[in-house]
Design a protein around this nucleic acid. Structure first.
Length: 129
DNA sequence: AAGGTGACAGTTT
DNA sequence: TAAACTGCCACCT
């Protein structure tokens, strides 16, 4: 349908962007950083935005995540939550439960769409770089 | 080509 | 304390 077609266009553009590695754009930087998130840890949209030098673009990080499906290498979008540890992006997965399931498969506990022990599970890109 | 849209976050009521 | 408001900016139509 229309939606599918739009998405296909987006994906193809993203692939093109990934192909041109000369000037890493916003998306690439978001994705590259997201790929560094260790298994079993999570970070926030804002933390990623800040880490790529665009501290006030957290909304775009979320948008980038929504388009990350299908990109290669894979982007662990499920490890990105909002600053309160809430799984605000769960609706963008195949099944709304999938985000939680993926996280639980990595050893995290989720309750009411919120990562438990969020503080200790939080991975701050700035501290690791 | 101008305006709309977010998987947010910080500030103000 | 919570809800409302506001800034944000790459990308889409």
């Amino acid at each position: 349908m229309l939606i599918a077609k739009t998405k296909a266009n987006l994906i193809s553009k993203l692939e093109i962007n990934q192909g041109m590695q000369e000037e890493p754009n916003f998306f690439e930087r978001v994705y590259d950083l997201a790929r560094l998130i260790p298994k079993g840890r999570v970070t926030s949209y804002g933390a990623i935005a800040k880490a790529i030098g665009s501290a006030k673009s957290s909304r775009m990080v979320g948008w980038a995540m929504s388009q990350s499906h299908g990109s290669v290498p894979p982007v662990p979008a499920h490890r990105v939550v909002n600053r309160n540890g809430i799984l605000s992006g769960k609706h963008h997965f195949i099944h709304p439960n999938q985000m939680q399931e993926l996280l639980e498969a990595e050893g995290l506990k989720i309750q009411d769409d919120k990562v438990q022990e969020f503080k200790t599970r939080f991975w701050d890109p700035l501290l690791e770089l």
